[in-house]
Simulated assay, not measured.
Amino acid sequence: MDRIGVVDTMFARVDMGSIAENRLAGMEGFGERFKAVRRTVPGIRDLAVACRQLIERENCEVVLACGMPGGDDLDRIRAHEASQGIMMAQVLAGKHVLEAFVHAQEEPDPVKFTELCRQRVGAHAVNAYWLLYAPEELRKRAGQGVRQGGPDAGPLPG
């Protein structure tokens, strides 16, 4: 049985890991063809190691890294560092790690912010599934300006 990894953080103010797990549980083949394996770490800078461990120790085929950087300048720097670590982890492991970050300053309204988290993390969970089982779904959307958690930008004319 294949495994899709989900890593989230204690720092996040929304349970992003459960959003991903619930979305994956609704996908075709869940429990028969694949399962989700979840880990929770303290903060975003811990995500890369946990992602790599899920790939190497738990044999995950793809991992979704969920994080919620805070709104100050130091948090933005930490988010960049975390992204660099996630990129390194996926290159070294040779498997995809999809980053689903929702930055605190993206939406000031708590209800809309929570919905943004649901949309972005849910969409990235579907992307993880598509990477394994339906890559043609990704191909259909090539060049379409598709965004996770917000309105699509749309394709440019040409």
Rank of each mutant, 00 (worst) to 15 (best):
G5K: 06
V6H: 11
V6K: 12
T9E: 01
F11T: 10
A12V: 00
A12P: 04
A12W: 01
V14I: 10
D15I: 06
M16P: 02
M16W: 04
G17K: 09
G17F: 00
I19E: 11
A20L: 07
E21V: 06
E21A: 03
N22Q: 15
N22T: 15
N22K: 14
R23V: 11
L24S: 08
G26A: 04
G29T: 12
G29M: 12
F30I: 09
G31V: 04
G31D: 07
G31R: 12
F34I: 09
V37E: 12
R38W: 07
R39K: 14
R39D: 14
V41P: 03
V41E: 03
G43P: 05
G43K: 05
I44E: 00
I44G: 11
I44K: 09
D46I: 07
D46Y: 02
L47G: 01
A48N: 03
A50R: 01
C51S: 05
R52D: 10
Q53T: 13
Q53L: 07
Q53E: 14
L54P: 04
L54R: 06
I55V: 15
E56G: 06
R57D: 15
R57G: 11
E58H: 12
E58M: 10
E58T: 10
E58V: 04
C60G: 10
C60D: 03
C60H: 08
C60Y: 05
V62K: 03
V63I: 13
L64E: 10
A65T: 13
A65Y: 06
C66N: 10
G70P: 12
G70T: 12
G70V: 14
G71V: 04
D72Y: 11
D72W: 09
D73E: 03
D73P: 02
L74V: 13
L74A: 13
D75R: 06
I77Y: 11
R78N: 09
H80R: 11
E81W: 06
E81H: 05
A82W: 02
S83I: 06
G85N: 08
I86Q: 01
M87Y: 13
M87G: 15
M88H: 05
A89I: 09
Q90V: 08
V91F: 13
G94S: 08
H96M: 02
V97W: 11
V97N: 04
L98Q: 02
L98Y: 00
V102R: 08
Q105L: 13
E107H: 06
D109F: 08
P110F: 02
K112M: 15
F113K: 09
C117W: 02
Q119N: 07
G122I: 00
A123Y: 03
H124N: 15
A125L: 14
A125N: 13
V126I: 12
N127A: 14
N127H: 07
A128F: 03
A128V: 13
L131F: 07
L132I: 10
P135F: 06
P135L: 02
E136L: 11
E136S: 15
E137C: 08
K140F: 03
A142F: 01
A142G: 08
G143K: 09
Q144P: 01
Q144V: 07
V146C: 10
V146F: 00
R147P: 04
Q148G: 00
G149M: 11
G150R: 15
P151Q: 04
D152T: 00
G154R: 07
L156V: 12
L156H: 11
G158C: 14
G158E: 12
